[in-house]
Structures are given as structure tokens and as C-alpha cells.
Write a protein that binds this DNA or RNA. Structure first.
Lengths: 142, 142
DNA sequence: CAGTATCCAGGACGATACTG
DNA sequence: CAGTATCGTCCTGGATACTG
């Protein structure tokens, strides 16, 4: 297993020999590129915006309406970030009143499967998590 | 397609007829269970802790050492949250000096594939993202 | 409609000191 | 070693008001 450069992309433990395992080290440096991108993608609002835009192109107000609890400011910020990263495209129509459409770029679309997997996991295990929380709280308050 | 209750788990657009698509609506309510869990799992530090523990059991200090930039306080907080959600187990050995091992629970282990998919995506596309950022910055500064 | 600008509160977070 | 406790800061993010 070559490891020219540190990486967050790790094999599962069982795929490694004892030696390989010992040698393996993640790159968790705060300034590393992967962590910066992860922070962006794994962001609370980004996740929701991407998932919604994967369903279809939406206007600013439509997004704001569909995402409960997001403020105008945070929606703007989130969209700018995603646009900067090339995940979302912004199309302005020169009409009055203004119309701006947001859509996923091809790059953004490649995230669908990944995000879906995260959401699916959450839905599949939410009851287990609820149980775990109850037990934990009981243990602590006892 | 039945939709007894709103859900974040959405099909891809192409899988829907026009009608189904119109009827489809996510549950993005702020207080919905799925969003709460997502916020936990998609958290910056949680992601790193889970991925590291997936490689092997670690002690408190080992985790702190391996995760660049995390403070003692945040590590403790993150671990407590993950423990509460039943993703991480905490084992205390009654020795001096104390020894506490953290490991993924079976539930936590089921997250491996998902998180891995996220990290892999990030690594696969980081150059594209870097290019997009450069272009965006140039456009804005022009 | 689709933002930008400004202000401000609250929580996240780091630093530090202390303990079983 | 593995925390807890406390304090102070910074920054996220909400509320509000204004504009092309």
C-alpha cells in the first residue's frame, strides 16, 4: 500500500495487515484541502441545498421557502460558497422583477449518491439512535 | 410512490414522473429527527473521530494527538455526543493512571461506508473544486 | 424578487487551571 | 491519563432595514 501523501481516505481496518495498519496515518491537518472541502460539503445548510437542487432547479425564494429555519443571509452565504466551489450554478435573467435560478452543476450532481447515502443511513437508524439517547440520558440522570 | 410522511430521503429527479415530482416534498423542518441526526453526524469533528475509530480503538490522548487542532474540550464534547447517540462506546479501566478506550459500536461501524463515500468523493474531486474556486475568485475580483 | 448592509445576541470554541 | 470547571473571545447566524 503506497502512501506518498497523507490522506483521509482510509481502508477499513480488516483490509490491512498489522504492519500496514501501524504505518497508516490520516492527514487530519487543519489546513489540509480535504478537510476544508469536507467542512463545506458536510455543512448543515449546504447538505440541504444540494439535496433540494438535485431534485430540480430552484429560485432563491423557493429555496428559502423549502428550507425551514434558514435565514436570507445564510441562504445567500451558502449559495455563494457552493457556487464558488463549482457545485451550484447561478443564472440571472435580465427581467423585472429579477429572476435567479440555482441548479446543480455536473460536479454537484456527482454528490447525489454520497449525500443520499448519508440521509438514508440516518433514516434507517434513527430509532436505534433514539433508543441509545434514552438509555444514555437515563444512565446519566440516575 | 407513497409518502405517508415527509422525508429527506429523496429519489433522483429522473426517477420521478412529472406528477410525482410535483407532489414530492422534503421534510426540512428544523426540529425533524433526521435533521438533528444529520447535524450530529455531519459535524466537523464527529466525522474525523468516527473515521479514526473505524481504524481502531483509541484512547483519549491518542485521539487528541491524531486530530490536529481539536481542543480537549471539543474532543470530550464530541465523544459524549457520539456516545449518547450510541455510535461510540467508552470503556474505563480501573487502573492508575486511568485508561479509557473509545471504540465504534456496531451501529457506529455501519457508518463506515457512508463516511468513506464522502471522503472519497472529496479526494476524487478536489482538483476540480480548486479550479472552480480560482475561476470564481478571478471573476469576482475582476 | 433577490439580494446587500448593519447590528447584535448566543453559542461554539480555545486557553487555562485544577482533580481523581 | 483523562478528564471537569471556568472564563473570555470570536464568529456564526438571526433580525431588521434598505436597494436595484
Amino acid at each position: 500500500m503506497t502512501m506518498e501523501e497523507g490522506t483521509l481516505n482510509s481502508p477499513s481496518r480488516c483490509e490491512l495487515t498489522e504492519e500496514e495498519y501501524e504505518a497508516f496515518q490520516w492527514d487530519t491537518r487543519e489546513d489540509c484541502e480535504v478537510r476544508q472541502i469536507l467542512d463545506r460539503v458536510a455543512d448543515k445548510w449546504s447538505l440541504l441545498v444540494i439535496a433540494l437542487l438535485d431534485l430540480n432547479t430552484l429560485r432563491f425564494t423557493e429555496l428559502k421557502y423549502k428550507i425551514d429555519g434558514i435565514s436570507q443571509r445564510m441562504l445567500t452565504t451558502t449559495l455563494r460558497h457552493l457556487e464558488r466551489d463549482g457545485l451550484v450554478s447561478r443564472t440571472v435573467y435580465p427581467v423585472v422583477p429579477p429572476r435567479v435560478d440555482y441548479a446543480l452543476t455536473p460536479l454537484g450532481m456527482t454528490l447525489h449518491k454520497t449525500i443520499q447515502s448519508l440521509v438514508t443511513w440516518t433514516e434507517d437508524h434513527r430509532s436505534e439512535i433514539a433508543v441509545a439517547r434514552d438509555q444514555y440520558d437515563k444512565r446519566v440522570n440516575a
